[in-house]
Amino acid sequence: MTAPAVPVVGPRTANGGAPRRAIDRGSGFVERYFRIHTSLVYAFLYLPIVVVIVFAFNATDTRVTLWRGFSPKWFGIALNDPLVQKYVLNSFIVAIPNAIFATLFGTMAALGLQRVGKRVRLAFDALTYVSVIVPEIVIALATLVLFATSFDAIEAVFGVTRPGFGFHTIIAAHMLFNISLVLLLVRARLSTMDRTHVEASYDLFAPPWPTFRQITLPQLLPAIMAGFLLSFTFSFDDYVITTFTSGPGSTTIPLYIFGAIKKGVTPETNAVATMMLAFTLAMLAVGQWLLGRQSRRRGGGASMTGIIVEQT
C-alpha cells in the first residue's frame, strides 16, 4: 500500500526504460513524423558540407558546380599554392597565442572572481552580458574605430610613426571573446565542483598552492581544455572580427575564403574548405579523446559534446 504504484524514476534515468516507453508514445503517425522530421533535419545539416566536399574532387577546369569526373588534383594545387600556405601560417600565428593567453586570463579571472565581493562580480556579469548581447559586427567595427582613432592619437601626441593593423590587433580583438568564453566555462565548472576535497585538503593542513595544484586544477582541467580548443577554433575560423582588425600581410584563411566567394568559388576554394573542415574536426576529435581519457582516469563524465551542448 505504501509503495507507489509507479516506481519513482529520477529525471536522469527516466529515459529509455522499456516498460515506460509506451506512456508518452503517440499514435503511429506522430511517431513516424518525429522520425522523418529528425532524418530530414540531419540531411539539411549535412547537405551543404557534403556538397563542398564532393565538388572539391571535381576534375573541372571551368565551372565549379559542373561535374567533370573525380579528381583529387585541386588538393595538390591548393597545397602548393604559396598564398594558401602563407594564409594557413597566418591563421596559426593568430590562433595559437590567442588560445594560450585567453585560456590563461579567463581561468585566472574565474578563480579570482570567487574571491571578490558581490559588487565586483556583478560588474563582471554585466560586462559579460553586454559582450553576449552586442552583435559581433558592432564590436568589430567599434574596435576598428577605436584602434584607428588611438593610433592617430599616438602619432599626433608622441610624434612616432603611426602603429598599423596586423597580427597584434587581430589577436587583441579575438581575445576579448575568448576570455569571455573561457571565463564562462571555468566558472560553470567551479560552481558545480565538489568542495569536499578542497576542505579535506585544508583540514589536512595543505597550503593553498598544493591544494590548488592537486585538487582544484585537475577538476577544472576539462573546462580549461574545452576553453582552449574552443578559443583556438574561434580564432582559426573567425571572419568578422578578423577582417576589420587585420592589416596588410595578416590575411588569414577565412579572409581568403571570403575573398574567393566574392570572386566566385573555384574547386580550389572547395579543396581548401574541405581541408579546413577536416582540420577542425580533428581538433574536435582530439578534444573528445583528451576529455574521455581524463574522465576515465578521474571518473567524472565530461565530453566535448557534453560541454558544448550544456554550455550554450
Binding site: V52, Y239, P254, V265, M276, L277, M304, T305, I308
Partner: peptide
C-alpha cells in the same frame, strides 16, 4: 552529429548554399 556542423567554419557552411 549536431555538434560537428556547429563546430566547423561558419563561412564554409554558408557559401555551400551558394552552390
Amino acid at each position: 552529429l549536431l555538434v560537428i556542423p556547429f563546430w566547423t567554419s561558419f563561412l564554409i557552411r554558408t557559401y555551400a548554399w551558394l552552390l
